[in-house]
């Protein structure tokens, strides 16, 4: 039997671009408007279980009731609940742009007990610990667009 020559396998490149536009809806929409116009963070409150919904939304997933317009302004201060420092090159999935390294992402529990994931200003992991007190730093008004990135990052204000 003669040896078979190795076969050439073809691969078709697909450099696809797929633009989308997502409606925020009335509840999250109001949250983003307040963030853009007044640098304020809002949650709404479930009339049945009383918990704050953050991000604000129409229905409490646990009680299955309409949440409505019981709005609560949140403090822009909280504590670092957990964090990690990203050192691996990664793209922003919304824009495809490469993020600047290294950058820490953290779960931040605001004073009212609700949490969000955001960046920390401090990039030295040796200086970051769970329990650190942090405060939101907002972009200037003219740069704010009504999105989570209107918060630049959270700044350490005090050790635990």
């Amino acid at each position: 039997m003669t040896e078979k020559p190795s076969e050439e396998f073809l691969v078709m490149p697909i450099p696809l671009e797929l633009p989308f536009q997502w409606a925020a809806g009335p509840y999250l929409g109001r949250f983003f408007r307040e963030l853009r116009d007044n640098a304020r963070l809002l949650a709404n409150k479930c009339p049945q279980c009383g918990r704050l919904l953050f991000p604000p939304r129409q229905v409490c997933a646990q009680c299955h009731v309409k949440v409505g317009e019981d709005w609560v302004e949140l403090s822009d201060k909280g504590v670092v609940e957990d964090f990690t420092v990203v050192v691996e090159p990664m793209s922003d999935p919304s824009t495809g742009e490469r993020r600047t390294l290294p950058y820490p992402t953290a779960t931040i529990r605001l004073e009212e007990g609700v949490s969000l994931i955001h960046y920390l200003e401090e990039t030295d992991s040796a200086k970051i610990r769970e329990g650190l007190k942090v405060q939101a730093v907002f972009k200037p008004r003219e740069k704010r667009k009504g999105e989570m990135r209107d918060i630049l990052y959270f700044r350490i204000v005090e050790g635990p």
């Binding site: 989308f20 997502w22 999250l28 990690t84 990664m90 955001h118 989570m148």
Partner: peptide
């Protein structure tokens, strides 16, 4: 990831499991 709330900061499975390990 939720397109409006946290997609911009998503770090795939690596970020999620780094948190699990840290915790």
């Amino acid at each position: 990831s939720d397109p409006l709330w946290r997609r911009w900061i998503a770090t795939g499975a690596m970020g999620a499991f780094a948190r699990v390990g840290r915790d």
